[in-house]
Design a binder for these strands. Structure first.
Lengths: 239, 239
DNA sequence: CGTAACTTTGAAATAGCTCAAAAATTGTGG
DNA sequence: CCACAATTTTTGAGCTATTTCAAAGTTACG
């Protein structure tokens, strides 16, 4: 059930059997949500964090004029809101982009982990710091990269993150987003996303159709993106 | 010495005398740096975190074409790289924008804190989550806001953050940045920053001259920015 | 007091946006 | 499995916020 979560954690640090047991016993209820539901609202006091088991989640903020900016996408194995443990409430909403299965971990149980498992605490702290690193890379994309490089970056990032949890088939993966949703990640309009996708397709780098990303030339994609996976911290830390 | 750091922490959570003592005894060496120096380089293994006592620091990433994106500014009382404790290395550089005084806290001492002070650990974990919240708000600015709203947001954010640590004089504060440096925060060119600053000045909202921000109409500034300080988590959490 | 760094302004260029409509795809009830 | 409504994708044409390039002022300071 939490296999993908363990895969994600073990891609960066070792976990003892004891720690794995602690995680398993901290997990609570499992829930299913339909696509397109806001499952966590900003500014609501929270008493549990949500672990994504299956599906795609989006952290986003809406502006008054109706524009939306997605600040991070979550793939299976990610905590959607581990940060709510220390923040108590969120500054953004979280919604399902596809049908999702999630598990909860109460803040009470997380507190127990901080009291009994210092190393596991650091592993989870690392997890939220990884989210921040992803935010930073997105800031760079949004602030400085061209539309095509932003798109290429997003596809590259998801290729790595989904690969870690076994959700890629070689250079291809499911990504059930509309072009409008992509545009909300990239700070673009959906019309422009459409043109950028055509451009990437015609260059022979990637194809995005019917909810699937097919990378035809990974080095080219990385070149267009100026992609450096360093910010995903794939190396093993030694406790 | 670490008074501003304590002010920042206590704006969000209570600290026991014991915890304050633990922080004080974890602090190491104090160092001074000239303006314009990169004091922490991406991808270098780190064994200590850096607490900013005085001055302004910038987290930034450079692109191959020479463009730069700043991902966060740090004010006195902030840890510049508390995240290096769990990340071990950074995905970005950190430089001084003004002359700075910093103190170090070794990762060894931080590790001891995670083992002996679970609540203080959560307070520090909160600190890195606050940085992530700031990143998210910048993503929204960079992705969706107009140039003038971005500028107004940055001035509003710094007004709050500097206020917490006693570095504002009413609606005015020191901000020793060039227009080029501002543009690197906002994903704009320095030419456009210049025009936006004129616009804000002519509207009677803010004036930025000779390293000082003078807010003439705070409600107007907030209105232009669509500023909501919720993401700065100013309320007290109850342990 | 000279020089480097920074700010300001102008004019032309452009990446990405807006508006609008057509084409394709997907989902649904019968 | 079909028909059709809704959603999504695609394309076109004109527009605008911001950039680029260039040069002139201004400020800081060694």
């Amino acid at each position: 059930m939490i296999e993908r979560h363990l895969l994600k954690l073990r891609a960066r640090d070792s976990l003892s059997a004891e720690e794995e047991r602690a995680i398993r016993s901290a997990i609570g209820e499992v829930r299913d949500h339909q696509a397109g539901r806001t499952i966590i609202r900003a500014n609501v006091e929270l008493s549990e964090s949500t672990l994504l088991l299956d599906g795609l989640l989006s952290r986003y903020k809406d502006l008054r004029n109706g524009q939306r900016q997605v600040t991070e996408l979550h793939v299976p194995g990610d905590f959607a809101d581990l940060h709510s443990f220390t923040l108590k409430r969120l500054d953004h909403d979280i919604m399902t982009l596809t049908p999702c299965r999630v598990a909860t971990m109460s803040h009470e149980n997380l507190k127990r982990i901080t009291e009994e498992h210092p190393h596991l605490t650091r592993v989870y702290w690392f997890g939220t710091n990884l989210d921040a690193a992803i935010h930073r890379e997105w800031e760079v994309s949004l602030g400085r990269r061209t539309a095509i490089a932003r798109m290429a970056n997003l596809f590259s990032e998801l290729h790595v993150r989904l690969g870690i949890v076994g959700l890629t088939e070689g250079n291809s993966y499911r990504l059930d987003l509309t072009q409008l949703e992509l545009s909300e990640c990239l700070g673009l309009t959906s019309v422009h996303v459409n043109r950028v996708l055509r451009d990437l397709r015609e260059q022979g780098a990637v194809e995005f159709r019917s909810g699937r990303v097919m990378i035809h030339d990974l080095p080219l994609l990385h070149r267009i993106a100026e992609f450096d996976p360093g910010y995903l911290y794939l190396e093993q830390r030694s406790r």
